[in-house]
């Protein structure tokens, strides 16, 4: 239990620290120092017209949106951990977009970010409604509070980035690409917040989200799609890891959360092949592909694979980076050349 701060998300450290775990308390202190240092560096850097504002509202267990505003940009933390986690998660996502990719908020123009927590009763979900992110509390049996994972928050906001960039249609392969981009940048938000290298990251989406008795580690794994959980109540993680297992289905809008495992793994393979921090080169290539204007809204996996190879070539030139991207797609069975 030594290098806690590189594996466990801050909210979990908070929880462990509350429970009196000495390692967690130390890691939390280290983590806080890291974030403070980063925040200082950020303040020193010239910013394009300030940070986009964040607003968190509370639906009070109803399904009426947006709910009552409970925290705004720069305001003090509230007594409600879900509110503060949502606020911090929005901040972590804004930080990745701005500091790494130079993008001001999800639209690139400083769009204020809105979130609603405590949506519905024991609501087992989180979603992006086109304008705001909405979080349920989970039923506490199968799922815990959806604000608990910074990668889930990054995932939802990336749907916003996609909406303002590639605008991938949310069905079939283009929908699975939309989902995969949300998972990729959701995972990068977490890795960036924790200062992790590609080789050290857990590559999980929703680690800590599953209820106490559920057999599994998370909802999805970019590293090993199909292995995140296997539980009598929840069933087995259905994600394919390559085109051999591609699922043709009418449900889930054509399997958008299922087949996304294939491009997810292509990103993971690219990132570990390139080494270092995943947000630097692999993330930059995927970001360029998402925002470069070359993708059509109905793009399929092969279109996206070719777009990433072209993005790698234009940013890093012919050579090992292009080969790593093309090699990753080949391993998951998608033609990229």
């Amino acid at each position: 239990m030594t290098p806690l701060c590189t594996i466990i998300p801050p909210y979990l450290l908070d929880r462990l620290a509350e429970l009196g775990d000495e390692n967690a308390r130390r890691s939390l202190a280290a983590d806080t120092a890291l974030r403070a240092a980063r925040a200082t560096a950020l303040r020193a850097a010239p910013l394009p017209a300030g940070r986009p504002g964040r607003t968190v509202a509370d639906a009070g267990h109803s399904t009426r949106l947006p709910g009552r505003t409970v925290r705004t940009e720069g305001g003090p933390p509230t007594a409600d951990p879900a509110v503060n986690r949502a606020y911090d998660g929005l901040g972590a996502t804004l930080a990745l977009l701005l500091e790494v990719y130079g993008r001001r908020s999800v639209d690139g123009e400083g769009l204020p970010l809105q979130a609603t927590v405590h949506y519905g009763e024991e609501y087992d979900n989180a979603f992006w409604d086109g304008q705001r992110m909405v979080f349920g509390d989970g039923d506490q049996v199968v799922f815990r509070d959806f604000t608990g994972c910074v990668d889930v928050i990054g995932h939802e906001l990336t749907h916003g980035v996609v909406q303002y960039s590639a605008a991938l249609e949310y069905r079939g392969q283009s929908g699975a690409l939309n989902e995969s981009l949300a998972d990729v940048f959701g995972s990068l938000v977490k890795q960036y917040a924790l200062g992790q290298q590609a080789a050290d990251a857990d590559w999980l989406i929703g680690a800590g989200l599953l209820g106490p008795g559920v057999r599994g580690v998370a909802l999805r794994s970019l590293k090993a799609p199909g292995t995140a959980y296997d539980d009598p109540r929840l069933g087995r993680d259905p994600q394919p890891a390559s085109m051999d297992g591609y699922l043709e289905t009418g449900s889930d809008q054509g399997g958008v959360h299922l087949n996304s495992g294939i491009p997810n793994r292509a990103f993971y393979l690219t990132a570990v092949e390139l080494g270092g921090a995943a947000w630097e080169r692999a993330g930059r290539i995927w970001y360029d592909a998402m925002t470069g204007g070359a993708l059509r809204p109905d793009a399929d996996f092969a279109d996206f694979a070719r777009t990433t190879v072209a993005a790698a070539r234009s940013r890093f030139g012919e050579g090992p980076v292009v080969e790593a991207v093309a090699g990753a797609w080949k391993q998951v069975g998608v033609p990229a050349l």
Binding site: D124, N125, G235, P238, S251
Partner: peptide
């Protein structure tokens, strides 16, 4: 009632 999709992509 069949509920599909959602963050987890499960059908219930």
């Amino acid at each position: 009632v069949s509920r599909s999709g959602g963050f987890a992509g499960r059908t219930t």
